[in-house]
Design a protein around this nucleic acid. Structure first.
Lengths: 225, 225
DNA sequence: GCCACGTTTCGGTTATGACCGAAGCATGTC
DNA sequence: GACATGCTTCGGTCATAACCGAAACGTGGC
């Protein structure tokens, strides 16, 4: 099969622990310097440089120079998609040891996946919108319904502005911890941004997102079970 | 990030060309012997044996012995998911050279993804059902509506029997060639099986599915644009 | 201009993993 | 039982890739 070597080429890039650590760190949507990524990966700066060069060559990350610093970001959301899918597979196949602990629970509850909400709360968000007919699959893709446009507008989302961007409005992203879909795309990103601005939640360490008590109440009111 | 090495462990298994070729070959849902997979991968039997052992250890494939033959299959649909996601990523990042040709066109039109219909026709199937309100996201997951149950029943699908299995009825699977979702899960598999039994389409080489002229007309009537 | 710092390049080390042929074991056929 | 075939194991080869320290280059601050 001609697909084999091509799959292998991208998987091999991801398949090094240091590089996977770097990619995983970038899933929180933050830009990070080569130094930071080298520290995260636990390798020397020279080694980090080689790995980052490999990731850039593979178009999995992008780099922007600011003075002496080089900032790296994931090149697109589909890299995060692939990583979440691989995490899900690793979990199912037992490569991922079962671990409890607050860190894992926090990640499972709410975490950032590139630029949108993931985890239990991310899944809840999509399912609440969907169950109430505010978001539906409308032929070509998932999108807000008429009722949904009003509801999202009331939440402070400017759908007209989002619609003008080239980016797909809604995308479904397989959630690693929940094994169900959460909402990605421009709308997913806008919703997370809005929740951050409103103070419903704050960024925690790494990819953890933490709801404030009033923020959680507001979230549950906006996206009821 | 603790997720890094775990992602890497599964990606590294996929990241060898010979193993990726084997996995890709198994995406058509057929069981294959070690000899066949070695030939597909273009390596010696001894090497194939080592690779297959690695894939089994990683729980990406399962093996069943029948006399002197050992038959290998993908261990679950999520392996196919991961492979499709990686293919999609490889395409976007340019690791996959742009190639035309009848083989690629045939794969793009209709192919088997583990046990369900993928490609243009697979995407059309899901989008047709969804647009006509026959399948919808119903809170926890995508499933048939009341109207959909009747429609699918008329197509010869026994939804009651499918519902009794542990397997999720509907699952969304990101389609490599179309970059949109197609229908997986028990229903996706049942629909493909039904179409094969009805002679709407036949299996071609590898993962290619070929519609018969009457089958194509029936498909288009059942799943209109 | 000097120094500190971030980053990359260079040269070398070393472990690993894919490769193969040969041999051994198990199954199937006559 | 003899032979053929499928598959795995063993022992060896060799290319590669990750690793590091040192040096070089570029940017920023004083």
């Amino acid at each position: 099969m001609s697909a084999g070597p091509l799959i292998a080429s991208v998987a091999a890039v991801i398949g090094d622990p240091a590089r996977a650590n770097m990619l995983s760190a970038l899933m929180d949507g933050r830009a990070r310097t080569a130094r930071e990524l080298g520290e995260i990966a636990g390798v020397a700066p020279a080694t980090a440089s080689g790995h980052l060069s490999r990731l850039v060559d593979a178009s999995l990350v992008e780099v922007r120079q600011q003075g002496r610093h080089r900032y790296f970001t994931l090149s697109a959301a589909d890299v995060a998609d692939a990583l979440e899918t691989l995490m899900s597979l690793a979990q199912r196949t037992g490569a991922m040891p079962s671990r409890g602990g607050p860190r894992d629970a926090a990640l499972r509850e709410a975490r950032i996946c590139y630029d949108h909400l993931a985890g239990e709360k991310g899944v809840r968000l999509l399912e609440s919108l969907s169950r109430r007919g505010l978001v539906a699959q409308s032929g070509e893709r998932v999108g807000p319904t008429e009722a949904g446009r009003a509801h999202l507008g009331a939440l402070g989302i400017d759908l007209a502005a989002l619609g003008r961007a080239r980016r797909p409005l809604c995308r479904l992203c397989l959630d690693w911890s929940e094994r169900r879909m959460h909402l990605a795309g421009a709308l997913g990103a806008a919703l997370l941004d809005r929740m951050l601005v409103q103070g419903w939640l704050r960024r925690g360490e790494g990819r953890v997102l933490r709801f404030t008590p009033p923020g959680l109440r507001a979230f549950e009111a906006a996206f009821p079970d």
